[in-house]
Design a protein around this nucleic acid. Structure first.
Lengths: 336, 336
DNA sequence: CCGATTCGTCGAATCGGTTCGACCGAGGGA
DNA sequence: TCCCTCGGTCGAACCGATTCGACGAATCGG
């Protein structure tokens, strides 16, 4: 079932079969039809490896994800899904590569073995050696997220700094004076995870701008940690009346801790965050939050990558989104 | 940076480089060292396409997932993560293929273009044309889930029928007489989604065995639907004192509906389900549930697939797991 | 001391496509 | 009528690896 077999049965040469399929040279209607009939009958498809070898491209992109051991957040899942979706629309396949920890062989294989035409990297750190590796390799790539100095790369990202600042202003406008930031996990922040640092910076700046009293804490990415963290926060700072958070996975725990402390949301306490819309709406009560357009970002990342593959020397482009805050049910005036 | 370049710089023939790398023929220590030095210096990796073409295998497996539009449940995410993880351990790459809906081109490409050595298929229906397609193609594959008559395939699956029956018996043992099943979405069940049907069958059988009164409903996979569904259920059947569920995504909504109706869990009402442990523990209160070992199942699926790739004519194997119910905080004696 | 092994290496064939140069015949312009 | 162009097709080269057969040199047993 290779191209030679098709050629033999159609009574033409292999090149003619190739031209009939790719259309890169004219083939007479009768010949073409005969070839297609044979192909259809035998269910022939060109061998992807042979084609990739000759053409020098694989029609596959790599998607570098955090290692499987760290559970994907809802937002990350949204990115993965939208990248896969957008790639499928462009008739590209997606090769998954967990990176970090023990799986660096996988990353190496993807980057170095000419298995993919380009790469999308998620979960970028301020200093990220995967990015350095990719830049050195010359392979086209796009970050979902960006390094501290992203001038030499193409990327899409969420403007956490602006968003958290906006959250703080929203709370300040409502009269809150003592607010807390529930950030991502201490490990992530310590490892230089961009959103954690940028959220912190935005929080500090806005708190200073509005003359508020702010306290920032880190919190692991699950409901139990969110609860523990909030209980601790309320015990240490009983004066708090609001929380801003970028940790969607912890939000349910934050709710429970507040309920157990006797505080009712939003009457006694306000919460505002940055989260996937799906997630914000499914909390109870629905979370007032900046809705991250994960689907759009993933699609844009694929777009950018296609551009770089088509012209690797083109100027780098990027997209920084700061979606507006959707008012739902968790923020209200500061209690008197 | 191909093997010829390495050969030239090391002053040997291309075949010798190949033998030095694969070890399939002896190479003298000095020569080998010289070759490895050059390779190291130039950062050479064999071209994956060329190797695949000659060897006839790609060292890649396909993972067929539901289309991106339908959000992955926590359990499905666990499967994906564990498959990727297990594949990485075996030095295999994973090619993602959304199937269903508009993405059948992607599935076709994966199955037919000799891009992968084997395939793992998720979300299998009782009658599943992707399975039929794979059987016809002769490509090794393993299902996570199984068709109605899975004799001709290898698979791993969760024994929903037994598990839900076990849940019902657990509730009956606690004295509950009126119980409901909250199943997966009506669309899934209508489409012949196996777990939905098998859960229903196990529920009906156990309810009959114990002489209970049971009511089964379908429910979309999110918290809002869970709440609406439960409210409806309580309105129609106020005599209910317990719910068994296979719909982990709806559980939070079930909780809220019960709380809003004034029922306290587990004092007034019991809930028991089948869910990923991570998910059950993060609910509040933690859900008494059969903990699905998604990680183990994914790893087993990869194992089975490796076996089939190694020997496609070997007898089919399968694994049906029925993990015990972990008692947490949501079941108690039926109210008097 | 000679024939048979064994070791280390090389050259050439091969995998299944794409693509380039060339060829033949028909049609069109001068 | 002659020449050129162009449509349609073929054969051969090529992409970058693996692998088989062969061959020279060293080793070994008799």
């Amino acid at each position: 079932m290779n191209i030679g077999e098709i050629a033999k049965r159609a009574g033409v040469s292999r090149s003619t079969v190739s031209y009939a399929l790719t259309g890169r040279r004219p083939v007479s209607p009768e010949t073409k039809q005969r070839i297609l009939a044979v192909i259809d009958e035998l269910g022939y498809r060109p061998n992807a490896a042979a084609r990739a070898l000759k053409e020098g491209r694989t029609r596959t992109i790599g998607l570098v994800i955090p290692p499987a051991s760290t559970r994907l957040t809802d937002m990350q899942l949204g990115f993965v899904a939208s990248v896969v979706d957008a790639a499928a629309r462009a008739d590209l396949d997606v090769l998954l590569s967990p990176s970090g920890g023990e799986h660096d062989r996988s990353f190496e294989r993807v980057v170095t073995g000419q298995r993919v035409d380009g790469v999308i990297v998620m979960e970028i750190r301020l200093e990220d050696d995967r990015v350095a590796r990719l830049m050195a390799s010359g392979l086209p790539f796009v970050g979902i997220g960006r390094t501290r100095d992203p001038a030499g790369m193409s990327w899409v990202d969420i403007d956490y700094e602006t968003l958290i600042a906006r959250c703080v202003h929203h709370l300040a406008d409502l009269g809150h004076r003592d607010i807390a930031l529930v950030n991502r996990s201490a490990e992530l922040v310590a490892a230089g995870y961009g959103p954690g640092h940028r959220a912190r910076a935005g929080f500090d700046r806005a708190v200073a701008d509005r003359g508020l009293r702010g306290v920032a804490v880190c919190c692991a990415d699950d409901a139990q940690a969110g609860q523990a963290c909030t209980e601790h926060l309320l015990a240490e700072h009983p004066e708090l009346t609001a929380i801003a958070t970028v940790n969607e996975a912890a939000a349910a725990g934050v709710y429970h801790a507040l309920a157990r402390s006797g505080r009712e949301v939003p009457r006694d306490f306000s919460i505002v965050g940055v989260a996937a819309r799906h997630w914000a709406e499914n909390l109870h009560p629905p979370l007032t939050a900046a809705d991250v357009p994960a689907v759009e970002l993933g699609a844009q990342a694929v777009d950018l990558l296609l551009g770089r593959i088509a012209d690797p020397s083109a100027a780098h482009r990027h997209l920084l989104v700061a979606p507006p805050i959707s008012l739902r049910a968790t923020t209200g005036p500061a209690p008197a």
